[in-house]
Design a binder for these strands. Structure first.
Lengths: 233, 233
DNA sequence: TCTCATATGTTTGTCGTACAAACTGATGGT
DNA sequence: ACCATCAGTTTGTACGACAAACATATGAGA
């Protein structure tokens, strides 16, 4: 997508409509837990807090509703709570999506994509090293962006982003374990190496293991991807 | 979810908010092609057509935007056009999601789920037989609902629904081929048989083949799931 | 005192209007 | 034929209004 021959990053969107900022603000609040799962979202209060009109606020709430971050229960809008089962399913889905992504990237990525991958991996490793959770999440988003662009599969990017917003609260938990961080770096490097070798199957295996580990860290679950996943004769 | 011991279907939501009806109406219009891909969505016109206020209409548009059915280009809102590449990716993603779904269902479904599956398959086959496209799509939605409920994975249901709204226009094309219909019935029965045997791997293989065939019918593409998909040593 | 019904307040869903800013297209001068 | 200005359209945002659904408090009666 980025056809620039220079290393210029695209200019950031300065003039985002107000409702996007509202949506982002609320999304962040939900992800960080400032708005706890299950808590009610009262329009009047949110308008007062954010100092915006109800019109714009409601449009933002519709977006969040469509994203699944808030739910329209019988008692009005509440922040969606994710059950352990749902979390497990999200990790399982991420597994198959990332598996697909790895194989597509290994098959289709061009040299520019590989170069971008290296840069993204380096940055991600630095972020893990630094231990700054916000930065890790941002770097990881970039990392996926690079992967999906290289694989030319924006559908996966969209779905993964959507899933990630839901489990970012859990990720805060798993990412704050320093032990995991060390292991994660190694896994990411191994992943990149496999991709550079264009070994999609191996990359997929590493990605699955990576997600499993993250899921365990986040959920304390034992097995997210049971043996059946591998049983292809 | 449906714990009723009788065969009672849940009561339909009578008092849906107006904006839901608006959203549904627009979604249908897009799916059927009444609103063609690329065509502009002018708020004032839509308000006039649907006879609703701009406030409610705009909330609906935000939902559709979050669903990816409409896109906010530089020239205002337009109906999202799906490129062949995107369509291929959607089919590929459906493949891995349904693969996961099959294995989960085979592993976790209880007797009630199996019974519901049989009913759904019978209905789906009847729909194919009758050749009524609307009915096929509705039955297939039911079919997935049964599968996801049995697999206890609502996340997949949500993602598949989202993907399906995007490619329903293509499905109109592929489903109208009577030859495909015959083959589809056989595939669906084989799928159900494998699930009843709890043979997740086989069910997954059939599902992949089914999607491949559908994709070919819709896109004229040759291969959506290349060999790498099977290459698990 | 406990219970129920009524009154009161709060929240949501919908509408209409308004207006600034961005964008579009038309008009007209050179 | 080209450009500049002007008017119309479209979007983004805000406000105020009101009915209906819902919640809460209040008070009457058992």
């Amino acid at each position: 997508m980025n056809k620039s021959v220079h290393g210029l990053a695209p200019v950031r969107q300065e003039a985002a409509p107000l409702r996007r900022k509202i949506t982002s603000a609320l999304r962040r609040a939900i992800e960080t837990g400032a708005l706890a799962p299950g808590s009610r979202l009262v329009e009047k209060d949110l308008c007062a807090d954010l100092d915006v009109s109800r019109t714009s606020l409601r449009e933002s709430l519709r977006e969040l509703e469509a994203e699944g971050l808030v739910t329209n229960g019988s008692k009005g809008l509440v922040v969606t709570a994710i059950s352990p089962r749902e979390a497990r399913n999200i990790y399982a889905v991420r597994g198959v999506l990332e598996g697909l992504l790895m194989e597509q990237f290994a098959r289709e990525a061009d040299d520019a994509a590989m170069a971008r991958l290296d840069a993204a991996v380096t940055e991600l490793a630095a972020a893990y090293e630094a231990g700054e959770i916000e930065r890790i999440i941002a770097s990881k988003a970039d990392f996926y962006e690079v992967l999906c662009t290289g694989a030319d599969n924006m559908i996966v990017l969209e779905l993964l982003s959507r899933l990630n917003t839901r489990i970012n609260r859990l990720r805060f938990a798993s990412l704050s374990q320093p032990l995991r961080a060390k292991a994660s770096i190694a896994e990411i490097f191994a992943l990149a190496a496999a991709l550079r070798r264009r070994d999609g199957a191996e990359a997929r295996r590493i990605a699955l293991a990576h997600i499993d580990a993250a899921a365990c860290a986040a959920l304390g679950a034992v097995q997210i991807h049971p043996p059946a996943e591998e049983a292809t004769p």
